[in-house]
Write a protein that binds this DNA or RNA. Structure first.
Length: 914
RNA sequence: GGGCGAUUAGCUCAGUGGUAGAGCGCUUCCUUCACACGGAAGAGGCCACAGGUUCGAUACCUGUAUCGCCCA
């Protein structure tokens, strides 16, 4: 066998480039839905926006999934990690529109067909960016199954779902107040609005009574300009200030209208403002509902661009001079004008500062307007109920559990889902209208065609050939497209071939785990559950693992505008992909956001280098025969490291099963660095470096055995370096990717070896401390004494003599402390263990004495504390016997230590004086 | 306004009803033939505050403060 010489420093770049491509070429990630004997384990990736490039949030999300998938694959499960991208309707349309703008074009100038073509073109050139980046990260997706939410199969499925929901009466069209983005010019669903607190003013307006203009009612509002569309004033029916006014009318200032005063205990908060509020059903959600309760008409005074609308104002009886003054103005300009008008007319009583929430478009951050328009909705309650039940009954587990209430709470109050968007990029709604039958409902003004409420749609999977009612041939397709989240809600089954009953669907649905961030729990997760239950009759996944958000080192949300974005590709370039992956995994503690700092990644880069050098070390000493001796015949270091390894295997496996990536990563780090490298490799050096050593063959075997196993254990976390090392050391098989994950082999556990080792570690620690106290240089060989109060331990020290001498660099005399020379000896004592080192003539003893004094103080403190507890009658009578025994034992040990330390200190002081 | 979470070493974070832990940073020593992206030894903490439960609380309960997130 030829061993390759490894470089002194690990260079991730070359290794990663080679393996990321090679794994794919060899088809290791390809799923087999038909012949694989293993239990299926499927994860569908949260499809990144096709516009996107990999950011650190993806890196976290994908790293965790890849860990799970690689781990399960190695465990022999029939794994499928299904990749894909999302067409991201509004976001993508915005990107392409921006491009057009730069060319002096607009989507309107192109027309719908050419615009959509243009987006496809853009997708063809830029859409693969993120996929290529994912491959670079080593993501073990089955890339042959890459799906896109607008590819042919998925589009067909989307239409199918729409038609079926419509036929089931779960989709309807109606005029409702919806969230409207005046910049994107489209409706948004409730959750696509981000609420932000801003400073505003509360305006107190006096509305005079119609039959007694000298008295009036003062209403409080944050949006004075909408008063033009008021259709009532509400007071609380129990409010003694106003209840006698209910049923009377007020004169609405700036208009020719009179509006009624109504009593409403939902809308009106007795404590807030003046206790009287205006009702503007066309421009406020709460007012809209109040309007429904009281049968009020809705008067819209803003148009689709959120500009004051002349026609609307006229219809609302606004005085013509006011109409002229305000027409076409945006709210920001209209408000000061209205303010002035109201002041002049003595209507504005006062204003006061007021904090209020404004809604912003989650795509473009423009302030959204409640807007009255006909839209398509999903009737959600019938879908939400089973989705709640699935979680309540534990058919879906949400991890961490804390989010369950969040989910259930949202589902309980869920509102019908507005699914139509007035954009062009997306799945066009499969609804057609007969122009003949709907001549009054279809109006075109200024080139904008509006399909009014009441139009009768023809819902069809294919383009209908004619009107089924009048057989008319002139049909207009509904111009709206579906909410992007409509198609992603179907992702777990449409990507597997639904509505066809494919083998994939049969094998992999329901999927095993969904890994996602909290931010899309409602957007995506909840809706997948609803749709999965509706169309598959089964939950789409069994576990939902919700991970944290990645923030910058200061805890700020990363954003391009703040300039605090950590680019994962840059980091991968600088420190290696494995280092980034390991960092993210080790920081993925539940319920806490990740503050990512580069130093942390650098630390794990160092870890990778450490692993690399451990492998280098192994390779350097691997020449010669290797023999697998029975475990009982192996050396202490070998039995100890195997015992620690099996312990680590158990920990990593258990932690992965409970999605504790952080703990699994910590266990690996601790084992590899501080057990394998710090102790094991040091311990076996004398054997490896002695030619023809009797333990050589067995030690070399264990060295390879443990290193090879450790690489397999590490592989899901650090796929590249583990593969590279695995390939270099003796192994069987083509790639670590397809090897078995290490199993817990209980035979490796060796409690006796661990116990011995603990004594070794403790003793070596004391010797090393002594050396530093006495300023012996690290290389200097020194004689030292070791002894123990406990006879068993004393004899164990004899067994350890060789290792002690090696690790402490000196010659070890194991004998009872009372036999040691009394003079010129520094003695350190811990828990019955004594170490004595000769003091050279020229040594400064101050440091050693200080250290002894300090330890004596600490021992005293501890002694008092423990003794105090034992003197407490209640403790002795109530604490469990084993705890009491333990305390008593500690008092004994501490007292002995204390006496010996005292003695040692006095000796040193004597020396100092002489 | 409602709900959830956090508060532990200088920083970032684990953790447990009975000796307080890690990484980074810091101090001192060391280029020893795996690794200076390294080794060894150290310093550093009233576990936010106040009550309660308990023989015993950093941990369990209640309240307070501060910060963060979600929802309205």
């Amino acid at each position: 066998m030829t061993t390759r010489q490894l470089d002194k420093t690990y260079d991730p770049k070359a290794v990663e480039d080679r393996w990321s491509g090679e794994w794919i070429n060899r088809g290791y990630f390809r799923a087999d839905e038909k012949n694989h004997p293993g239990q299926p384990y499927c994860i569908v990736i949260p499809p990144p926006n096709v516009t996107g490039s990999l950011h650190v949030g993806h890196a976290l999300n994908h790293s965790l999934q890849d860990i799970l998938i690689r781990w399960r694959r190695m465990q022999g499960r029939n794994t499928l990690w299904l990749p894909g991208t999302d067409h991201a309707g509004i976001a993508t349309q915005n990107v392409v529109e921006k491009q057009l703008m730069a060319e002096g074009l607009s989507r309107e100038s192109l027309g719908r067909e050419r615009f959509v073509e243009r987006v496809w073109q853009w997708k063809a050139t830029s859409g693969n960016t993120i996929v290529n980046q994912q491959k670079q990260l080593g993501e073990s997706c089955d890339w042959d199954r890459l799906r896109f939410t607008m590819d042919e199969g998925l589009s067909k499925a989307v239409i199918e779902v729409f038609v079926r929901l419509y036929e089931d009466g779960l989709i309807y069209r109606g005029e409702r107040l919806i969230n409207w983005c005046p910049r994107c010019l489209t409706a948004l669903s409730d959750i696509e609005v981000e609420h932000e607190e801003v400073k505003g003013k509360l305006y107190h307006l006096r509305y005079p009574l119609a039959d007694d203009p000298n008295t009036g009612l003062i209403v409080a509002t944050t949006r004075p300009e909408t008063m033009l569309g008021d259709t009532a004033v509400a007071v609380h029916p129990d409010d003694p200030r106003y209840r006698h006014l209910i049923g009377k009318n007020v004169r609405l200032p700036l208009t020719t209208r009179e509006i009624p005063i109504v009593g409403d205990r939902i809308l009106v908060d007795l404590e807030f403002g003046t206790g009287a509020v205006k009702i503007t059903p066309a421009h406020d959600f709460n007012d809209y509902e109040a309007g429904e309760r009281h049968g009020l008409s809705r008067l819209a005074v803003l148009d689709h661009a959120a500009l004051l609308d002349a026609a609307g104002m006229q219809q609302a009886g606004v005085e013509s001079s006011v109409v002229e003054m305000l027409r076409g103005l945006p709210v920001s300009k209209a408000r000061p004008k209205v303010d002035t008008l109201l002041r002049e007319q003595g209507i504005l009583e006062k204003t006061e500062d007021h904090k209020m929430a404004v809604g912003k478009c989650y795509r473009c951050k423009t302030v959204v307007e409640p807007y009255l328009s006909p839209q398509w909705f999903v009737k959600i309650q019938p879908l939400a109920d089973p989705a709640m039940k699935a979680v309540e009954e534990g058919r879906i587990r949400i991890i961490p559990e804390g989010w369950v209430n969040n989910y259930l709470g949202w589902m309980r109050d869920i509102k019908d889902w507005c699914i139509s968007r007035q954009i062009w990029w997306g799945h066009q709604i499969p609804a057609w209208y007969c122009l003949a039958c709907n001549s009054r409902q279809i109006v075109t003004t200024d080139g904008r065609t509006t399909i009014l409420q009441g139009a009768v749609p023809i819902i069809s999977r294919l383009t209908p050939s004619g009107c089924p009612t009048c057989h008319g041939q002139q049909l207009l397709r509904d111009p709206d497209v579906l909410d992007t989240w409509f198609s992603s809600a179907l992702w777990p089954f449409t990507t597997l071939g639904w509505p066809d009953q494919t083998p994939e669907l049969k094998t992999y649905y329901p999927t095993a785990t969904l890994v996602t961030g909290l931010d899309i729990l409602f957007f995506w997760v909840a809706r997948m559950i609803m749709m999965g239950l509706k169309f598959m009759g089964e939950v789409p996944f069994k576990d939902v693992y919700i991970h944290a958000l990645v923030r910058d080192a200061e805890g700020q949300k990363m954003s391009k505008s703040k300039g605090n974005v950590i680019d994962p590709l840059h980091v991968m370039d600088q420190f290696g992909t494995d280092a980034l992956r390991f960092t993210l995994a080790s920081m993925a503690s539940p319920g806490r956001d990740i503050k990512l700092a580069e130093e942390r990644i650098e630390g794990y880069r160092n870890f990778a280098n450490k692993i690399w050098n451990a492998a280098r070390f192994a390779l350097m000493y691997l020449d010669g025969p290797r023999t697998a001796l029975p475990l009982a015949q192996r050396t202490l270091p070998d039995r100890w490291i195997l015992s620690r390894l099996v312990h680590t295997i158990r920990t990593v496996t258990v932690e992965l099963e409970s999605y504790r990536f952080d703990r699994a990563a910590t266990a690996l780090y601790q084992f590899i660095w501080h057990e394998y490298c710090d102790w094991y490799l040091e311990l076996i050096k004398p054997v490896l470096q002695t030619p023809e050593h009797p333990d050589g063959a067995s030690t070399r075997h264990t060295l390879v055995e443990t290193l090879e196993t450790t690489m397999r254990l590490l592989h899901p976390f650090m796929p590249f370096i583990s593969e590279e090392i695995w390939q270099t050391i003796p192994h069987q098989g083509d790639s670590i990717v397809v090897q078995n994950y290490p199993d817990v082999d209980q035979a490796w556990a060796a409690p006796d070896a661990e116990q011995l080792f603990a004594l070794l570690e403790q003793t070596v620690g004391l010797v090393r401390t002594s050396r530093v106290l006495l300023n012996y240089s690290p290389g200097q060989q020194i004689p030292f004494h070791v002894g123990h109060d406990d006879l068993d331990r004393q004899s164990q020290l004899h067994q350890l003599q060789r290792h002690l001498a090696h690790l402490s660099r000196g010659t070890a005399d194991v004998s009872p402390p009372q036999d040691w020379p009394a003079a010129r000896l520094l003695r350190l004592v811990t828990e019955g263990l004594s170490v004595g080192i000769a003091v050279a003539d020229d040594v400064d003893l101050k440091k050693a004495i200080e250290r002894l004094a300090k330890q004596i103080t600490e021992t005293d403190k501890e002694l008092q504390r423990v003794d105090g507890k034992l003197k407490n009658a209640e403790f002795v009578s109530k604490a469990p016997p084993d705890v009491i025994a333990e305390h008593q034992e500690r008092v004994r040990t501490l007292s002995r230590d204390r006496a010996l330390l005292d003695n040692s200190e006095q000796q040193l002081r004597t020396m100092l004086r002489s």
